[in-house]
Design a protein around this nucleic acid. Structure first.
Length: 273
DNA sequence: TTGTGTTTTATTGCCTCC
DNA sequence: GGAGGCAATAAAACACAA
């Protein structure tokens, strides 16, 4: 156990209250000081040091220890108990502050990461829109027979993926009359990036058709597969890309534009204290 | 000197445990 | 039911700028 002698040396008990000046007739003032009714008295620096040492050893106070401390410091056991109680409260609030700071740091870094991903998402979306627009323009210019046939076919068999239709050789059977139909409305629906089927819909399928010199050939696309990868990487901050690659979308709605974060998750950024 | 904000000591009321 | 702990709060003591 800590002995108050260690802290105060061989000073007189009056030195507990070293911050007070008791003047020449110290004894009287000392007496008066101790018998002030209802007056709060601050503990001396030495007393506080001693109590701090004791608190650091054990922040709970058994009755025997309380009495011993009271004797050593010349205080009431009740004062010792109160001091420990208040000290525990201070300790707790400091700890709360620390925890708060740690959580805030965590929040800030997550927020930064989220913002960065949002930025990447916006850039990718802009690129998709841009490419879609180019595609539609070229399509209109060339009026490709194949694309018209595929378009007509997909309207006749909306339940079948176009790749299936192509592989079944049904394209040849289609009347070219269908080409006169308005293609733009179907295409716009098809390429609407907000629609759930955006990622695996006709756009991707058409890119696979391949052997005719039409606008869907990969060579004429602005993005080859490799380029797509590089494009994605170049947009992503270095520290984020490995994480992004590891994201499992299996549990999230088929909306890659959110990178696996449900939209409601932004509520995470709204913790209140 | 004084007004104001912060820290420290002490009280009160409620809760839990034995 | 009493002892002790805790949260909330009061109030004295203290620090400090204007």
């Amino acid at each position: 156990m800590v002995s108050f002698q260690d802290v105060r040396g061989n000073r007189s008990p009056k030195s507990f209250f070293g911050q007070y000046d008791f003047g020449d007739n110290g004894d009287e003032e000392w007496d008066e000081y101790f018998h002030q009714p209802e007056k709060k008295r601050r503990l001396s620096v030495d007393q506080v040091h001693f109590l701090e040492k004791s608190f650091n050893l054990e922040n709970k106070l058994e009755p025997e220890r309380k009495v011993q401390l009271a004797k050593d410091l010349g205080l009431q056991p009740r004062q010792i108990a109160i001091w420990f109680q208040n000290r525990r409260a201070r300790c707790k609030s400091k700890q709360l502050e620390k925890d708060f700071d740690a959580l805030q740091d965590c929040y800030n870094s997550l927020k930064a990461e989220y913002d960065s991903l949002q930025d990447v998402k916006d850039k990718l979306k802009a690129e998709v829109d841009n490419l879609t627009e180019k595609l539609l323009l070229k399509e209109k210019e060339m009026g490709s027979t194949e694309s018209c046939e595929l378009n007509a076919l997909s309207k006749q068999h909306p339940q079948k993926p176009i790749t299936d239709l192509v592989s079944e050789g049904e394209v040849a059977k289609i009347s070219t009359v269908a080409c006169n139909q308005d293609i733009s409305s179907a295409k716009i629906d098809t390429f609407d990036s907000d629609s759930p089927g955006c990622a695996d819909g006709v756009h991707a399928s058409l890119l696979k058709t391949g052997d005719s010199p039409n606008v869907f050939e990969p060579e004429q696309s602005d993005l080859s597969h490799d380029e797509e990868d590089d494009f994605g990487k170049s947009l992503l901050p270095q520290h984020i890309f490995p994480k992004l690659k590891g994201i499992d979308y299996s549990d999230s709605p088929a909306n890659p534009s959110n990178f696996g974060f449900p939209v409601e998750d932004h509520a995470l950024w709204c913790w209140s204290y």
